[in-house]
Design a protein around this nucleic acid. Structure first.
Lengths: 237, 237
DNA sequence: CGCAAGATTGAAGGACATCAAAGGGCGTGG
DNA sequence: CCACGCCCTTTGATGTCCTTCAATCTTGCG
């Protein structure tokens, strides 16, 4: 990727937004550009943070496994998102694992360089607070939903989020999810199992809210899903 | 409270830890010391952040309510914890409400002063990243638990956390929770209803894992609860 | 004393997890 | 080109965890 292209990538991210031109150049000089095939592990939960990663293109998931082995997906990352930021900033082990979903291109910086840059460029440090704070507010919202809503609502929300962040508009209200998502993935995202998700998708397909093919979901009626997400609609079996 | 006392309070908090002496003095000069009765609301979810609050003494809960009205407790705050930090740092509405549980004493700073101080004192900004990052890792852990564990495990964990952070050691392994906690509170913390909690507590009391009085819980066998939290123990009815 | 807030208990039903089995796509290798 | 195997998916049956509702009990306090 050329210089101007990378520069545009940087400015899309919360972390590098609005930096002085001089700093931006320095940051770009220090960056290493790499590509990763779909389903490659960028780092493992528990690893010491070696580098900060900007997802320039592609999609990735942040997942966590407990002692019992049950995985859950904490967050789907989209182009412009920064991976591993909390671990690098805090010099602490990665709290989650990062895995690419599609072929992706990344910009990476060594962790020591990042820590040094935070010292040197106050604007970068300011952005990092904003980034982590934003992430934190998302988590608060998800935690609340997980505590108070039923699977059906959470699943509808998950689909709407995916559509909002990785959706390709089709004709009318139609939105096609721009990433391959299996029942298992959705289950880990929602906090349930793939069987429940399968049944939900079929029900919604029957209601013409969406179409669900093998790894490809298209929302036909986002408004209808939103009503389900809000709990206004008690769908009868 | 006297100057030295306040200074000690500050140094206990992640946000003000390790600051240069000169900065610490400035911070103390800008602080307002106030007290709040039990169950007073410090700020409401959705409010614009007016001040940063350090909980010097007492306990508080951060809770969230959704459109449907179901509340959930996101976090219990202990002496040394900072309330409203994300909102102040990001100049965004409070994502949660803060309510004192016991009579509390607080140190507060006006939001504009805090933002100014962040610009002026790099060490403060560095600490703020650490603070918010730490908060964020907690949330990730809680979210994972909520997604993969059953009520019984989560309830056991909640009790152990409360004991760890607000527990007063008694004889032997005995730990008394140092805060008044109702079944309703526990339910909102765990993501269930007070009936399930009531039954669990009675079961555990029968197993001599704890004693549960009106608003006062004492753990008799933290190790036993830990086994339940880890899911090793399939307790039979 | 009587009220209010917290707590207990039972019954009933629904939501969800778990297990078992089998039906399609899709790629690979024969 | 077809067959085979693998992965994703569907579907049913079964049981249990959990919610919901209703009623009662306890305790502290005005």
């Amino acid at each position: 990727m050329n210089f101007a292209g990378r520069r545009a990538q940087l400015e899309r991210s919360i972390l590098f937004m609005g930096l002085p031109e001089a700093v931006l150049v320095r940051v770009l000089e220090a960056a290493t550009s790499v590509t990763a095939a779909a389903r490659s592990v960028l780092f493992h939960q528990g690893d010491a943070p070696e580098r900060l990663i900007l997802l320039a293109d592609g999609l990735a998931k942040m997942s966590r496994v407990g002692d019992s082995g049950d995985p859950s997906i904490i967050r789907i990352m989209h182009p412009g998102d920064v991976l591993g930021c909390v671990a690098v900033f805090r010099r602490a082990p990665h709290p989650v694992s990062a895995t690419t979903i599609t072929d992706s291109s990344l910009l990476t910086w060594p962790a020591p360089w990042v820590l040094d840059a935070l010292e040197r460029y106050p604007a970068l440090r300011a952005n990092s607070v904003d980034l982590v704070g934003h992430r934190s507010e998302d988590l608060v919202q998800r935690l609340h939903e997980m505590a108070t809503e039923r699977v059906e609502q959470r699943a509808a929300r998950a689909l709407l989020r995916l559509a909002g962040q990785a959706g390709k508009a089709g004709g009318g209200r139609r939105v096609e999810l721009g990433l391959p998502v299996s029942r298992q993935d959705l289950a880990e995202l929602v906090g349930t199992d793939l069987f429940v998700i399968s049944r939900l998708l079929r029900k919604w397909a029957a209601m013409s809210l969406l179409t669900a093919e093998r790894l490809r979901i298209t929302l036909l009626d986002p408004g209808g899903l939103e009503r389900i997400a809000e709990g206004h609609e008690r769908t009868v079996a």
